[in-house]
Amino acid sequence: MPAFTMGRRGSEPGRAARSGAGAGIRTSMALTQTEIFEKVRGVVVEALAVDEEEVTPQASLFKDLGAESIDVLDIGFKLEQEFGIKVPQDELNPAAGMQDARYIKDGKFTPEGLEQLRAKLSDFDLSEFERDPRVSRLMDLFTVGFLVKYVEGKLAAK
């Protein structure tokens, strides 16, 4: 028993897969969405020290899983290692590339902005968000499912 322990111990999800991720071993074999989800879940479990069961596609990283801003950097680094992709920090945000008055005005998404969001987050039900589309509430949409979709897009572009 260690005299002092912080963070998670025991299994390290994805650690074994990691060494191969950058080496391009899987280039000929695309990952299924389930496989991507499982790896993303491993990253989130490790970065946020949460239980695997809590990490559902719908779970919001900030609201449900207790992430703080630095965790986004951590998750970005871990996704890069896990999948051998490049993750610019400003992309890890559902509103990435939307800092424009056409899309966001007075701290709220415009109808045009909401349309963009719907296109980006097509797997998600935004009806609740649309009733009160404040940008500050957007982080509620920063879900595990968003990460999975983001990684899918990155892998497809590789």
């Binding site: 260690p2 005299a3 002092f4 322990t5 963070g7 490790e46 630095i70 951590d74 680094f77």
Partner: peptide, 30 residues
């Protein structure tokens, strides 16, 4: 900003020397 993981298995007492070795895993502008 964050302690991802920390484990210490033994105490360090007076007269002993600690040695810290660190490597950079990832680095970017932020």
């Amino acid at each position: 900003a964050k302690i991802g993981r920390a484990e210490l298995e033994r105490d360090a007492g007076p007269g002993m020397t600690l040695r810290y070795t660190a490597t950079i895993e990832r680095m970017d502008p932020v």
